[in-house]
Nucleic acid binder design. Sequence first.
DNA 1: CTAGATTTGCAGGAGCAGGCACCAAACGCC
DNA 2: GGCGTTTGGTGCCTGCTCCTGCAAATCTAG
Lengths: 415, 415
Amino acid sequence: MRMHGEIEGAQAEIRRRNLSRMLRELHVSRPLSRSELAARLHVDRSTVASLVSELVGRGIVLERPRSRLVPQSPGRPSPVVELRQSGPGALALDIATDWLGAAVVGLGGKIIASARRDLSLSNASPEKVVADLAGIVRPLLAGIENAPRLVGIGVSVPGLVRAEDGRVHAAPALGWRDVAIGELIKEEFADLGASVCIGNDADLAASAEYLRGAGRGTGNFICIWGEVGLGAGIVVDGRLLSGAAGYAGEIGHMTIEPGGDLCHCGARGCLESVVGEEALLRRSGRDPLGGTAAIEDLVSAADRGDEVALSALVESGRGLGIGIAGLVNIFNPDRVALGGLYGRVYRYVRAPILLELEARAMPAPRAMVDLVTGRLGGNALLLGAAELALGPTLDDPAIAPLLQEQAPAGAVHHP
Amino acid sequence: MRMHGEIEGAQAEIRRRNLSRMLRELHVSRPLSRSELAARLHVDRSTVASLVSELVGRGIVLERPRSRLVPQSPGRPSPVVELRQSGPGALALDIATDWLGAAVVGLGGKIIASARRDLSLSNASPEKVVADLAGIVRPLLAGIENAPRLVGIGVSVPGLVRAEDGRVHAAPALGWRDVAIGELIKEEFADLGASVCIGNDADLAASAEYLRGAGRGTGNFICIWGEVGLGAGIVVDGRLLSGAAGYAGEIGHMTIEPGGDLCHCGARGCLESVVGEEALLRRSGRDPLGGTAAIEDLVSAADRGDEVALSALVESGRGLGIGIAGLVNIFNPDRVALGGLYGRVYRYVRAPILLELEARAMPAPRAMVDLVTGRLGGNALLLGAAELALGPTLDDPAIAPLLQEQAPAGAVHHP
DNA sequence: CTAGATTTGCAGGAGCAGGCACCAAACGCC
DNA sequence: GGCGTTTGGTGCCTGCTCCTGCAAATCTAG
């Protein structure tokens, strides 16, 4: 007997793809007129009409007459299609070493509400973390008007996340090993009826920066991300590099100095052990475990022109530059962005990184690569987590249920 | 006015994709019955019939009754669809430092004829190389019966190849800078009427090994390739990593020892300068520029148990292991294969590489990665080059012209 | 050797998505 | 206010794949 329903017709596949492309276009761009959509998707106007009406019917977008304020071109005006705030949205959670964050994010990457609580989570049990998250999320959800329908919960974790099932294989910064954090969160927020997706922090930051931050307009993009650990999210031809099991991007453990200092991972001379937060703090004479506060102190010392602070930063920048040069040779990216800790000290590490790039990256890739700082700041992780949770809806908008209600006031009616 | 012909209907796109999927299945697998094709492509029997008849009509495949020799299952027998030798094929050219190679390769990766000439090409002018190639190719082509229609010429070059136009940005081993080798070859072989594609040697080796060698069955695969230089072809989720301009995979210039020896690229401690052919020969007390002959001498010395040779190999293996460990952390591949020079000395470098992997790669990716030797040997480059040239036909089999002639004897007729 | 079971090829029809042509509507511009 | 332009809506057409019913070709059991 043949399985069917598995593929279910290539026509349906076209339809799904076109719906997805349209929704993604609105998601990463802005409200667009039907004509603009037709031009961008390379489909006929009648097809656009059909696709838009389906998305309207599922409560994902709405149409409104084009504003009179913007200058018009001749011809019949095209109604503008825009994302509906009460449409699909995500709950984004950010578990870091020194804080917990949460946000409700709508399609289009709009942060509708967010909250953050600073606290140290090194060696906090997963159960405690989930309980603390609930304490943040519940009031957050209660305070939202015209809330989106939550279709998913995306979670950022600073550690190795197995792609297959979202288990956290290891998160040294939290002291976790093999934790099914997704299951715990799913239980805690069972009433929301949303699926849970877990992602590595650097990957999520890269995904967000790629879509709506420093990586826009590129196809090959690397986002270096470090807080306590050091990793990278790597976008190759528009897709996030995940590797065979989801563990890709662990650039913190490239060897930079074979005989260097001992790293937590047991090896010597890992990039993380040379330029990570601990190494940076140690070099500047501060408590290596001082965390965010110590880093802020270091930065303000550097701002005052403190020699020790500056040279510690330069030293770290050179190490990082060696690592980045290797990545440039390996990936030939359009752009490399520094986020997290390295985004905050960007202005001090940029010059030494460029120096090492000049010395160590091959001329051709070096000439084309662009070194920048992340543009989303602390929101990168939350936006990336939301992206993860919204993925299924973006890939197949037809999973959103049809609405019974009529389109809300303000929509265009066709008599 | 709207451009059209650009997209020309999504139906046509489905058709193209299905034809391509069918041809690729035959290309990487073996002759398959219609039923097997239906199962593998997840399409209906009637669709398979339609697709097969189109491929037959274009002279790409033929159908023959299933042999009586193989054990049959009950039910009506399904004719076997197989690639036709006189169908599309490629001319593959391999420009290396110490030899020139050429082959005519049919669909399915079948080497129909090949030739090779050993000679030193360091600092040979592109014009001379092309003339020498012609001297190899012409007799080769003359001696083939039932030759394929050559749809493309694929060329392997040991250097940086710009993806956009195939120009060789730099090939240090040949002393080339910014050479439009493709144009020269296109002129020389203009009578063949085939398009010319240029590729980096490591990329092509990886592509061939991935398709029909050591990388089969994986999705994330790295093929380390070195003769004089050192590079890697990297397959991510089934696609070759090319980078923004095509320069990806230059792992030879990852920094392994920041204060190490000077590399030709001007930096210190590049992987290539630590473990490349020259370093290996120098370490063993041989002429660093001795080339293939010196390497053969080194290997036979090692085979005899020569201490110096063995320790030079082990030392290189450790350096290579450091580099591979970094790649494993970055890519989390299923498998890493050693080809070219490192394939030939595999048995001596395997142990030290594994040692460094154990020490330096993160536990989770390390546990899943597989270190193997290339399985295609010297044919990897030619097969990869052919793959490059056959790409357009595989992607859109409908570019092959319809045949006027009737299907040849042996085909199944439907009265 | 024959009958049943099984698998397959083939022909015809259905369903469905997108493209196209035509007409009407809504704007800017003169 | 008329004209040119752009757009939405409608109805028809094309092309692709899937489904169904039937005939053909084989294996197996008796």
